[in-house]
Simulated scan of single mutants.
Amino acid sequence: MPTSMPCPSIRIPVELLTQSSFSQFGTVIENPAHSPLSRSQRSPPPKATSANQGSALKFLDVTHLSNLYNLAPSKKSAKAVMNMFVCAPRDLRPHEPSESMPSSWGDLDFDEDDYGNMDRELFDVQILERHPFTTQTFIPMGLSGNERHTQYLVIVAPTLPASGSRRHVDRAPPYPTPNVKKQKSIKDLFAKARPSPFTNEAAPPPPQFTRLHPSARPKGPGLPDLKNIRAFVATGNQAVTYGAGTWHAPMVVIGERPIDFVVVQFANGVGIEDCQEITLVPDKNAEEGVVVMIDSDNSGRVQVKAGVGSVNAKL
């Protein structure tokens, strides 16, 4: 696949990380009691049951893990792996006025003179990656949910159709899913008939991917949709699972100290099948590239500027 793609000037406001706002990209893992949303705004809580002789409440199916390596060209099986990432705070650059518009939030008016005591800094998104055949769960350790001086950003993008990707790089991006045409047997042909001569089914069985959570289904061969890239701020009470094939930036820690993440995924050791990366290069007419606007208060806590729970945003 291409190693880089041109990008326009885009500035992205920060959103609150919630299950409803993040659902197309993956799942948010959190204790419902600690959700930053009010009770009326929260999604229905996951199923719960009593555990540990009644001393604990066990929430069931809090995220969706997918191993799709049976689709990989190498056919090499994958195993579950658990790694640790010690992520240092990122370098931010000072705020500079720009004509760039926030992606996906073009109807919001972010007045340059209307953020009072807020400090605004900028993070340049220079690389996106995806894991085509596996979900990837990041679990922060040692970060309090009330921490004001260190947080982390989750930056994600939808996937463009293959035809749209061709316009960006002038060639169709290869995707590591083989398109094998095999000769169908007579039994295979009759199996599609309904009612089936082999079963009592009146309708064909659903495709295998319909049983997966939408965020965990294969995303296809497309490049990232930069005009709809989004940035979420997470608390220490939240872990996040990227759906298989979801384009995302490497983890972005904001603040004073590193964050330790335990990362759970599947891997088969074949580089292009485990992880694909693309560098974002501002095109020749771009003032800058893809930039996240990070507003923080006097304590250093990142402020939400778009979506649910936003402050100082004009509709």
Rank of each mutant, 00 (worst) to 15 (best):
E129P: 03
F198G: 11
W247M: 00
P178A: 13
V169G: 11
N179I: 10
P158G: 11
Q183G: 10
P204N: 10
V125M: 07
E201L: 15
L143T: 07
W247C: 00
Y152N: 14
P174F: 13
R171P: 07
V240W: 01
K184G: 06
K192H: 14
K181I: 09
S185P: 07
V253M: 01
V233Y: 03
N228C: 01
P205I: 12
G220V: 04
T210F: 10
Q126C: 07
F232Y: 08
V253N: 00
L160G: 05
H149G: 11
P140K: 04
Q136N: 04
L223A: 08
L226C: 02
A234D: 01
I155W: 06
R217E: 05
P218W: 03
F190H: 13
I229R: 04
K187W: 10
P197G: 12
T137S: 14
R211T: 10
P204M: 13
Y152P: 06
F190E: 15
L189D: 08
T135W: 09
T235H: 01
R148L: 12
T199D: 13
F138M: 09
H149I: 10
P195E: 07
V125H: 02
N200Y: 07
P207N: 07
V253F: 00
P204R: 07
T137N: 10
L160P: 04
L226M: 05
P214M: 04
T159F: 11
T150L: 06
E201I: 15
P221F: 05
R148N: 09
L189K: 15
Q126Y: 08
T137M: 14
K227P: 01
I127F: 04
V252H: 00
V154N: 03
P218T: 07
K184A: 15
G236S: 00
P224M: 08
R230W: 01
R166C: 10
A157D: 03
G245E: 02
R217A: 06
E147D: 15
M251K: 01
K182P: 01
P140V: 11
P176L: 13
D188G: 07
I127W: 06
A234M: 02
V169W: 08
G220E: 03
F123H: 14
T235S: 08
I186C: 08
F232A: 05
N237I: 01
I229D: 03
N146F: 14
R194I: 12
R194S: 13
E129L: 08
V252Y: 00
R211Y: 12
P205Y: 10
N237K: 02
L143H: 03
R211D: 10
Q151R: 12
R217S: 05
T199V: 12
A193R: 05
N200Q: 13
P224H: 06
P207A: 05
R171E: 14
K182D: 08
N179Y: 10
G222W: 07
A231N: 03
P176V: 15
D225V: 02
M251A: 01
E201W: 08
F123K: 12
N200A: 14
P206T: 12
E129V: 02
L143S: 09
G142R: 09
M141Q: 09
H131L: 10
P197Y: 14
L128I: 08
A231P: 01
H248A: 00
P214R: 03
H131M: 11
P197M: 13
H131G: 12
R130W: 03
A162T: 14
G142P: 06
P197I: 13
S165I: 06
R166V: 11
N200T: 14
P197S: 14
S144R: 04
A203Y: 06
G220H: 07
P250S: 02
T241W: 02
